[in-house]
Design a protein around this nucleic acid. Structure first.
Lengths: 137, 137
DNA sequence: CTTGACCTTGAACTCAACTCTAAGGTTTAT
DNA sequence: ATAAACCTTAGAGTTGAGTTCAAGGTCAAG
């Protein structure tokens, strides 16, 4: 049985994060020591690894709650549910990437056109582009 | 002179947003009517357009504050300052895109491998991938 | 003169995922 | 026996960009 600090070090998260996940219903300590310390067993460690991995591929804590619900009772859930969650997250991620790519292109154009010199910003092409109605950036 | 609702409709933002920007020091109403209503003139409208455009290329409100400070007194600021803000935002944006692309690739792989069928999730490849130490996704 | 569409304020609330604080109890090593 | 390094709790704070609420004042039309 491991104390919270041990789990935290193993998985490179803070003890606060572990307590926070507990409050969020993601990971309960297996038992408490007589003094009230959280004690985790190997299966709790594995569950925390699952959470960390799911985060690493972009799932939110809310998504992870759903994944855990399924994982804990796989037999009464379908592959389709899991795939659906994954595809939904994929779509969201792609939409966000598209948005950021638009930002990236606009910012690139702005930066390229600007001399970036020490002289005054009176004729700065970036400011001008943001002022003018002609939003060609 | 325009009332807040007029500006809001013109620029497709809420009146709450305009009041919020005022609190943040981004855009003051030009004057107040005898009844205390905010009244904006054309230059305030132009400034709000600037803010909206700057947001549209990915600047945060904090960034926009800095841009406005420069814009209001261009003569005492350099092109370099503006370009620096832009490049900084560009770097941030690219970093975030990289992170999301990693998510995207992982999620794609997970989704591709999963049958997504109606059958139970007992052998779901997505769950298995997130459980196993072998993080090949 | 009243109805409806405006406008005002301050303050609290939202979301996500933590992080920090205060005030204390426990364990381990010396 | 005492100091260092753990652990506990409830609750507040953080970031960013707003949104919502309550309680009220104003303005134009009919």
């Amino acid at each position: 049985m491991y104390k919270i600090g041990h789990i935290a070090k193993q998985l490179n998260v803070s003890t606060d994060t572990l307590r926070y996940y507990e409050r969020q219903g993601l990971l309960q300590a297996s038992v408490r020591s007589p003094a009230g310390y959280r004690l985790y067993d190997d299966s709790a460690l594995e569950q925390m690894r699952f959470i960390v991995r799911a985060k690493a591929v972009g799932f939110s804590l809310k998504d992870i709650q759903e994944l855990l619900t399924i994982k804990i009772d796989k037999h009464n859930h379908s592959c389709e549910e899991v795939k659906s969650l994954t595809l939904q997250k994929l779509t969201q991620t792609r939409q966000r990437i598209e948005e950021l790519l638009k930002f990236e292109r606009s910012l690139s154009v702005l930066a390229e056109r600007c001399c970036g010199g020490e002289e005054s910003a009176d004729d700065c092409s970036i400011l001008t582009a943001l002022e003018d109605v002609d939003g060609s950036a």
